[in-house]
Write a protein that binds this DNA or RNA. Sequence first.
DNA 1: GCATAATGATACGGGTCCGTAACGATCGGG
DNA 2: CCCGATCGTTACGGACCCGTATCATTATGC
Lengths: 117, 117
Amino acid sequence: MPLEIRPSQALRLWRQVHLDLVRDGQADLSARQTAILLTIYLELPPHTVRGLAAQLGVTKPVITRALDTMGKLGLVSRRRDEFDRRNVIIQRTVAGALAVEKLADLVTERARELGGG
Amino acid sequence: MPLEIRPSQALRLWRQVHLDLVRDGQADLSARQTAILLTIYLELPPHTVRGLAAQLGVTKPVITRALDTMGKLGLVSRRRDEFDRRNVIIQRTVAGALAVEKLADLVTERARELGGG
DNA sequence: GCATAATGATACGGGTCCGTAACGATCGGG
DNA sequence: CCCGATCGTTACGGACCCGTATCATTATGC
């Protein structure tokens, strides 16, 4: 069941959602942080620093810093893997789930408002 | 002609496109820069610093700095308004148009690949 | 001509992020 | 044991961006 969308519609959708994010002032997330956050909330656990780095094609410090920032914002949390104490398991939070849900509603609503152009 | 998309589809689309942008390494654009770039390429000219700042709900230095960065990348260019030399007119470039078109194709393609979930 | 307004750019102090390299902690094999 | 491999984190120098305040340039009204 593919989703049919024309390039011009895609651009207008992309612009409008980004405008909303900027205007809401809550869009302090970079493209990398967005990719990390959505991976955590859409893919099956467990999530590790190394695994996320591999999926995004970036180095581990990038993931560590992004988790620091998003942790301050309360969007994700970390805990040690008790079975292999070298690993860190990245966990979801209530605030993170709310933010993801809000983004989903925003994209969905803006898509619904798209005209035929 | 609204575009029907479920919240779960919207999230998977958002994640996949951001993953592509990060992996391509071309995602040096922040949410603000993306909003500015798409506004320039989708809305009718002329575009000024003040006008963009008003549309995005940010201050003028934010626009100036974003234009500096995107100008270095060749995505936009600036010239003086000869009829009111206080104004600066922001213009599109070939490279910018290509980048926008590429983004449109990316979103469109990833939308087409979406399953029913 | 002169004062005022408007535009975009710049200075400043502070924060975040980058990539590379090194680090401490932990696991595992010999 | 102990040495190497693996994990996530931190250090470093550099770059970018933020918001506020200020600046030079240009236009406008009297």
